[in-house]
Amino acid sequence: MSTLEVLPQEVTNPVEPFLRTERIPHIWCPGCGIGTTVNSFARALLETRMDLDKVVVVSGIGCTGRVAGYVELDSFHTTHGRAIPFATGLKLANPSLTVVVYSGDGDLSAIGGNHLIHAARRNIDIKVICVNNFIYAMTGGQSGPTTPLTATTSTSPYGAYEPSFNLPQLADAAGAVYVARWTAFHVRQMTRSMSEVLKKKGFCFIETLSPCPTLYERRNKLGEGLDTMRHYKEKSKVRNGAPTSEVALGMRDDIIVGKFVDRERPDYSELLHHQMITQLGDKYVEAPACSCG
């Protein structure tokens, strides 16, 4: 390595204050993109100048489920698939919180798929960041609802033949007010989208594709994490506003990325409030800010 010198006092990694540095290095493999998405998330928190005491990260189970353990925020590592309903309770009990659900594709769209669509339908004011690596990585690379057709996984040894979910279309159809897709290559755009959803009311959904070199890429002979990042660079086409029905992913097809949906719709709390005021008038008592002493 080159000659090293001591850093000037004023220079530190800008993401450092957002991390539980005592827990790093994290568990993610070399070439995995989850850490890159967390890097973007930290930068979004920095950019938006959020009150970090009021931002909460809720994760499910899996590789991305470990994000909650690395962010220097109130953070909850919940059960498999149930980050969204946990986040729903948290947000409704304390509406002053900004609640971010940070989890993987299997956690959110398979075991947690029911909660994903219902939270979107209700327009619960939570922000969902879904890292999609096309596979159940933590358990050893099994196929899931996002595994592309023909991909080999440990439970589809002869190639996947189930059709996969197009997650932006699913979130869009269920009622999300913000839907975007980026990849771990699109760090600036991903950061911008994260910043936007932190400031937007309602159910927001960002899918971000990530390499899983250890399981998905290796088994499909797609090289290292870096090769997948190059693939994202080559194959991604930015189409902001694209109809989500046109953004399905294939094994090696073009990857349509962009902000697909950004619309306004009253969120759950507004709808509740409106209905209660209409029906009960001044007999309606709004839920107080919770405190159990």
Partner: peptide
């Protein structure tokens, strides 16, 4: 940009 891409901070 190196800092933004780095998965390991």
């Amino acid at each position: 940009l190196c800092g933004m891409y780095c998965p390991d901070f």
